[in-house]
Computed example of a mutant assay.
Amino acid sequence: MREIIFDTETTGLSPAGGDRMVEIGCVEMIGRVETGRSFHAYYNPQRDMPSEAEAVHGLSSTFLSDKPLFADTVEELLEFIGDAPLVAHNASFDFGFLNHELQQCGRPPVSMDRMVDTLVLARAKHPGAKHSLDALCTRFGVDRSQRVKHGALLDAQLLAQVYIELTGGRQIGLSLGAEQAEERSSAAASVADNPAPARPVRPPRPHQASAEELNRHAAFIDVMDAPLWKKVGETI
């Protein structure tokens, strides 16, 4: 199954209040395995960047001033995500901004039925624990040393690894074991149907010492000083 793990960066917390999406990063997974394909874009929000938001992701108004509008490259994004389920952390936030941008350029919203929220998964699997992306990376041993600030593509890549752990870990691939077991069973059946040719029966090798060997052994014992074997033989 094809899935898209994605993350967004914005000018604030409320699209209804005038905040805009300024970055999106998407990572493609098929069968819970990253394919290496990704999508990444910055957008000009056509508004100032609040200092609080810039402190989180480091994207300034100056940096974004020459970036395309969301509507200018929306086709590339829609082509990449296709009709796959969309996985995000606190997904209602990212879906809210994505659908707001789609609405702004006259596109239909992404159905909420496609939403997979890793925050919900984490709370169900580890109730009472910390569920931020940083906390989950620490819990699952995901290297986040490059995450100095939030970045949509980097966070999507980290979330992809966290998502694997939340949905069965690296052992997902062990489903191949059933196929391998079937192959071994078929091989065993083939051996049973085509047994190896019978080997010739060989007579057992003699293990009892000959008279000559016994005489040589007795001569060897006689030259020893108080041999234990001779005493045992006399007792017997």
Results as ranks from 00 to 15, higher is better:
140 F>A: 06
74 V>H: 12
78 L>G: 07
88 A>I: 00
178 A>N: 06
114 R>L: 07
154 L>M: 14
155 D>G: 10
130 K>F: 01
153 L>W: 05
104 Q>F: 06
152 A>G: 03
77 L>M: 15
174 L>R: 14
110 V>N: 03
76 E>G: 01
135 A>I: 15
122 A>N: 03
128 G>I: 14
159 L>C: 06
102 L>T: 06
160 A>F: 09
176 L>A: 15
156 A>P: 03
176 L>H: 09
87 V>C: 04
139 R>N: 03
95 F>P: 00
100 H>E: 12
143 D>Q: 03
119 L>I: 07
171 Q>M: 13
74 V>W: 11
76 E>Y: 01
172 I>K: 01
142 V>K: 06
126 H>G: 10
173 G>V: 15
90 N>L: 07
151 G>K: 05
155 D>V: 10
86 L>D: 00
109 P>E: 11
93 F>C: 13
164 I>N: 01
116 V>I: 15
92 S>E: 05
114 R>E: 02
74 V>S: 12
139 R>Y: 02
127 P>V: 15
133 L>R: 04
136 L>W: 09
95 F>V: 14
159 L>E: 04
97 F>A: 13
94 D>H: 04
138 T>C: 04
90 N>I: 07
155 D>Q: 08
142 V>H: 04
91 A>R: 05
171 Q>R: 09
103 Q>D: 13
84 A>I: 02
99 N>H: 10
142 V>Q: 02
84 A>T: 02
166 L>T: 04
120 V>Q: 12
77 L>Y: 08
99 N>K: 07
97 F>W: 07
102 L>I: 10
142 V>C: 08
172 I>Y: 00
172 I>W: 02
141 G>D: 00
175 S>C: 08
103 Q>I: 13
90 N>F: 08
162 V>I: 15
93 F>Y: 13
102 L>F: 14
90 N>M: 10
149 K>Q: 11
137 C>Y: 07
130 K>Q: 09
87 V>L: 02
132 S>M: 08
101 E>C: 14
165 E>L: 05
160 A>N: 07
94 D>F: 01
111 S>W: 07
172 I>M: 03
172 I>L: 04
150 H>R: 00
89 H>M: 08
91 A>E: 01
100 H>T: 11
118 T>E: 04
75 E>Y: 06
106 G>I: 13
157 Q>G: 11
168 G>Q: 04
140 F>Q: 03
83 D>F: 03
125 K>G: 02
165 E>T: 10
118 T>F: 02
168 G>Y: 01
130 K>T: 07
135 A>C: 12
111 S>E: 11
123 R>S: 00
74 V>E: 14
123 R>K: 05
122 A>S: 14
166 L>H: 02
152 A>E: 01
88 A>D: 00
82 G>Q: 02
132 S>C: 01
115 M>Q: 12
136 L>P: 08
82 G>C: 05
146 Q>E: 15
118 T>R: 10
146 Q>T: 13
93 F>E: 14
179 E>F: 12
175 S>F: 12
86 L>E: 00
123 R>V: 07
